[in-house]
């Protein structure tokens, strides 16, 4: 099968002093596949995700490599075309859902505007699609949510609204950067559940970035372990948990074990 997204030797450095932030990262995403990217905070996970969408300030940072989305190389696209790709073909769910919305407009306004920038259509149609998508992620009273302002909703609800938006736009690729880190355990599970629903229903490929091995264990097919900006191990999720090869992976799993041990005691 042909990959939806393939990244080859993605490298990100600062222009000022050539500090490498991400080095030689390569991976592919197939339709309906979830690839987990795991590592400590500051290891370059977020930089990688932003680099994929070319969201880094190119005055401060130099980025090289290939980012192939279907037939197009994102590295060669103009700002204008990129904007259409972002949110259209590639959607992005970030850690802090509050910062993904403008506080001054209602959720409905922002959802409808976003839907209409990517698909021409009347306001009415966009609103219907938004409502339907909100129902699909089991948000109660979708009408009220459309009228609400971002700060009136909880983090878990906002994250589900983000997933609903992904449902509307049917992106080929969804990059989810620590989508559940800011949530409590109850909401975490719900959000992951709906992510999986999107994948299963629409065959969306998901790059799931997390520092939490449990999230990876629940969701991923393939896992990339990142440390100091480099991929130190890549493996099938079962292989990784059963037979971790790299000492760093072994250390991460041991740390998870300490906490899990507390639970099963």
């Amino acid at each position: 099968m042909k990959p939806v997204l393939s990244v080859e030797r993605l490298t990100v450095e600062t222009i000022a002093d050539d500090t490498p932030l991400v080095r030689d990262v390569s991976f592919t995403l197939l339709a309906g596949q979830i690839v987990g990217l795991v590592g400590e905070s500051g290891c370059g996970k977020t930089v990688t995700s932003l680099a994929l969408l070319r969201l880094l300030d190119e005055k401060v940072i130099r980025q090289s490599g290939r980012i192939q989305l279907d037939e197009t190389d994102l590295m060669t696209l103009s700002d204008r075309t990129l904007r259409r790709v972002r949110g259209g073909q590639i959607a992005f769910i970030m850690q802090n859902p509050m910062s993904a919305f403008t506080p001054v407009y209602t959720i409905g306004h922002q959802l409808i505007e976003t839907i209409r920038t990517h698909d021409r259509g009347s306001k009415r149609e966009a609103k219907d699609r938004a409502l339907e998508a909100l129902r699909e992620v089991n948000l109660e009273e979708p009408d009220r949510i459309l009228k609400a302002y971002p700060f009136e909703l909880s983090g878990g609800m906002l994250q589900r609204v983000m997933i609903a938006l992904a449902v509307c736009l049917r992106p080929d690729v969804l990059i989810a950067d620590e989508p559940t880190t800011a949530l409590d355990v109850y909401n975490q599970k719900l959000v992951l559940y709906y992510l999986e629903k999107v994948r299963a229903t629409y065959g969306t490929a998901i790059l799931l970035i997390s520092h939490d091995l449990s999230v990876i264990a629940e969701m991923a097919d393939q896992v990339l372990v990142m440390r100091h900006g480099e991929i130190v191990e890549r493996a099938d999720v079962f292989d990784l948990f059963d037979r971790p090869q790299h000492p760093y992976t072994q250390q991460l799993l041991a740390q998870q074990g300490i906490q899990a041990g507390g639970m099963n005691a």
């Binding site: 500051g42 977020t46 932003l50 070319r54 880094l56």
Partner: peptide
């Protein structure tokens, strides 16, 4: 960490 984002 401060990640330099593209400014519009």
């Amino acid at each position: 960490m401060n990640i330099p984002l593209r400014r519009p």
